[in-house]
Each structure stands twice: as structure tokens, then as C-alpha cells.
């Protein structure tokens, strides 16, 4: 479906740590809490794994918003991953400002394994906030939609086991500056 024949639906990528927020999202499911379908959660072991590069890549690849979820301060399964996440998030916000990406498009939330209702609330709020901001239009540079792991069938053999390096190849202005800005 092309983007023009239906109303704007924000696309939000979420990075959830497996111990708290991803578990909370499971709990929201088990409790049948309904929420906006716009958020796609990617499971990481800890919010401390979130590399600002991921957030930039998500925007580059067409996300209109990015949500990061981790354990409450003091509750990180690895003691202090969320502290690192918070520190990097502050840097990230500054970086995004430089790219002209509105602050409201990123959000960091502490959601414990018991807070299924918070997953529901945050996903709904985030969706509405990003909906109000409208689609992200990145300038300059086109959205890049083909990347790692996508190899036309038939060419698969040639690309057997795509190299890890492929992903971190600078793609457009975002990524390069992103790395330097840290």
C-alpha cells in the first residue's frame, strides 16, 4: 500500500529490555490490554544496549518515533545498564535537535515487569504525540529502505552470511554524524 492512499499512521520502533519492559509488554498481552498497533518492539537484553545509531537508523528507515523502555533506576538486571541508557539518551536528544528531529519523537521510559498498564499508556501516548507531529521528513538524504540481509533471491548464494560490517557502513548523512557526535 502506498503512503498516499491512507491517512497517516505513525510508525514507532521500540527498544525494550527483556527483563522489565519487554516482560511488561507480555503482561499487557496476557491481561488483554488493548493499545495502538503502531509500536513495534525490538527485544534487547538491556536498555544499555541501545546504541544511538539504532535510533538514527530507525528514523532513517522510516520510523516517525522511537521509544526506549528499560527497568526503573536501581532495577536494571545488569545493575546500571539503564543509567548508561539515560546518559546516552541525553546525548541523543541533543543530536536529534541538530538534525531537526522534534524532541517528541523519542521517549525513554522506565517500565517494570509489573507495569503492563504503563506499556499500554506509553504506547498510546507516544502514538498520539507522534501522530500530532505528523510524518517525519528527513532532510537531506532519501529514506533508505533496502539494507542488511535483503538480497534478491537467487543472489542469496553470492551473499551467503552477510558480513557484519555491512550494517555499519555509513548510510547518508545521519549515520556518519551520529557516530562522530558521540
Amino acid at each position: 500500500m502506498s503512503e498516499t492512499d491512507r491517512p497517516f499512521e505513525p510508525r514507532i520502533v521500540a527498544f525494550f529490555c527483556t527483563w522489565c519492559t519487554y516482560t511488561a509488554a507480555d503482561l499487557a498481552g496476557i491481561s488483554r490490554m488493548q493499545y495502538a498497533p503502531n509500536v513495534r518492539a525490538i527485544r534487547l537484553m538491556c536498555s544499555g544496549r541501545v546504541d544511538p545509531q539504532f535510533v538514527l537508523a530507525a528514523f532513517r528507515d522510516g520510523a516517525d518515533g522511537v521509544l526506549i523502555g528499560g527497568c526503573h533506576p536501581g532495577d536494571c538486571h545488569y545493575q546500571e545498564g539503564n543509567v548508561n541508557a539515560l546518559r546516552r539518551f541525553e546525548l541523543l536528544r541533543r543530536m536529534l535537535r541538530d538534525f531537526g528531529i522534534e524532541e517528541g519523537r523519542v521517549r525513554l521510559e522506565w517500565i517494570s515487569a509489573a507495569e503492563g498498564d504503563k506499556v499500554q499508556r506509553v504506547c498510546n501516548e507516544m502514538t498520539e504525540r507522534v501522530r500530532a507531529l505528523g510524518p517525519l521528513r528527513l532532510e537531506p538524504g532519501p529514506r533508505r529502505r533496502v539494507g542488511v540481509g535483503v538480497v534478491p533471491v537467487g543472489a542469496a548464494e553470492a551473499a551467503a552470511g552477510p558480513a557484519a560490517g555491512e550494517a555499519s557502513e555509513p548510510v547518508g548523512v545521519l549515520e556518519t554524524e551520529g557516530r562522530e557526535a558521540r
Binding site: 525490538i42 530507525a58 548508561n84 539494507g147 540481509g149 557484519a164 550494517a167
Partner: peptide
């Protein structure tokens, strides 16, 4: 997540794997 050179990687959560997942879900 912190290595500025992309030298530190994590099995089953490499940069490449996560970046691909991001592309995929979008």
C-alpha cells in the same frame, strides 16, 4: 552499545542483526 568503534559486539544482538530487525519492522 557504548563502543565508539563498533568493535564490541554481542552474539545474537550484533549491530548488524539489530539494524536489520529495525529495517524489517519498518
Amino acid at each position: 552499545g557504548a563502543c565508539p568503534s563498533g568493535a564490541a559486539q554481542q552474539h545474537l544482538f550484533t549491530d548488524a542483526q539489530i539494524l536489520s530487525e529495525i529495517e524489517g519492522v519498518l
